[in-house]
Design a binder for these strands. Sequence first.
DNA 1: ATAACTCCTGTAGCAGACTACAGGATCAAG
DNA 2: CTTGATCCTGTAGTCTGCTACAGGAGTTAT
Lengths: 129, 129
Amino acid sequence: MFAIGEASRQSGVGIETIRYYEREGIVPKPERASNNRRMYSTHDIGRLCFLKKCRDLGFPLADAKTLLGLSEGDSEDCQSVKDLAEHHVLNVREKIRKLRRLEAALTELTANCDSGNVSCPMLSQLRAV
Amino acid sequence: MFAIGEASRQSGVGIETIRYYEREGIVPKPERASNNRRMYSTHDIGRLCFLKKCRDLGFPLADAKTLLGLSEGDSEDCQSVKDLAEHHVLNVREKIRKLRRLEAALTELTANCDSGNVSCPMLSQLRAV
DNA sequence: ATAACTCCTGTAGCAGACTACAGGATCAAG
DNA sequence: CTTGATCCTGTAGTCTGCTACAGGAGTTAT
């Protein structure tokens, strides 16, 4: 069993954040030592690692919580997990698509700037209703 | 010229948000009618559309403001305009790179997910050290 | 034993970007 | 003329996801 500082180091989740996750019910309340300090099992730390990875992947905390719940359900509901992930990946793809359009617009702007042209047709497009 | 509600409908930016943008100096103060109501030109509405698109692309509001400035060529120094625009292009490309890595990671995670699985490979992966 | 560290609870603050009133005034339609 | 929609200013609250104290207590190293 590990103290919160060690759990933090092992999982990469900050101490304050761990306590915040506990307050928010994202992770269950850990055991307490006789001196009232939180004690984390390797399983508890595994949960924190799981959450860290989900967050790093850009999942909102609520989704991370759901995924964690799914990962610990009696029957791992693979379809729900997949749905959540695929919904997330669709969002990511949409963002990429839009960013590429903006990249083109910005590239066009710099090109026009080179040639001394002030008005940019693609930015006009961005302004359009 | 259009009232704020119409500007909101045309641009997709909420009324309160438009006023917020004005307070924050993101957009210039619009003309006022004799009854003190804000009146927006199509150009003003174009600005709101531009901001909306930037925000939809995930740009922070401050960046959106800068981009809006660029799109209107409000700098007297063409070189610094170009530098700013190119800097933004680099930011956009970096964002795209990160999102594509994320997309790849998510796709790989879901690749082996099928509703028949007893244990979910994606969850196993997320649990792994 | 003293200092330095870690932990506790509880509360508050922050950043970004809105969003929601309250309490009026004004406008458009019937 | 009344009703209801829209607008005004100003202030305050919301949401996400932390992050930072304050003030106290137990732990560890020298």
